[in-house]
Amino acid sequence: MRLVSTFCIGLLFSSGLIVSGMINPEKVLGFLDVFGVWDASLVFVMGGAVAVTSLGYRLLNHQEKPLFAQEFTKPTRTDIDFKLFAGPALFGIGWGLVGLCPGPAFAAVSSSSKTVLLFFTAMLVGMCVARTRWLNSKLEF
C-alpha cells in the first residue's frame, strides 16, 4: 500500500511539473531572466505550492504518525555551515545554465531527447560525487 501511494504521489508531483510549465527549461530560464523579458508566471508555481504545503503541514501537526510508515522523518538540523551556501550556489549556477532542476529533470528524461538524457546523466554523476566520503571530508571545516 505504501509503495502504491508513493507511486501515485510521484505521479501527481510530476503532473504538477508538466501543468505548471516547470518541465520546460526555456520557460524556467525566462523566469530566471529577471532583467530581460521576465516571465513571472513561475512565481505562482512556488506560491501555489508553498501555500498548499504550509496549510497541509499545519493540519498534519495533529496527526500522530503517517498512514503507511512508522514515524515522521522531518529534518532536525538547524546549524548553518559552509555547505549550506556552497551547495545551493553551485546548484543555482547549474540551474541557470540549462533551466532544469532535479524534479523536472526526472520528469523530462522519460519524455524526451538525448539532450535531456545528457543533462540527467551528468546530474546523477554529480550526486554520486557529492556523496563520496572524500568530498565530504574536504568540505568539513
Binding site: 553551485l90 546548484f91 547549474g94 529533470a105 545528457l118 560525487v129
Partner: peptide
C-alpha cells in the same frame, strides 16, 4: 556542466 553542478550542489546543500 549544468547537470553536474545541479547534482553536486543539491546533494552538498541537502
Amino acid at each position: 556542466i549544468g547537470g553536474f553542478l545541479v547534482g553536486l550542489g543539491t546533494v552538498i546543500g541537502n
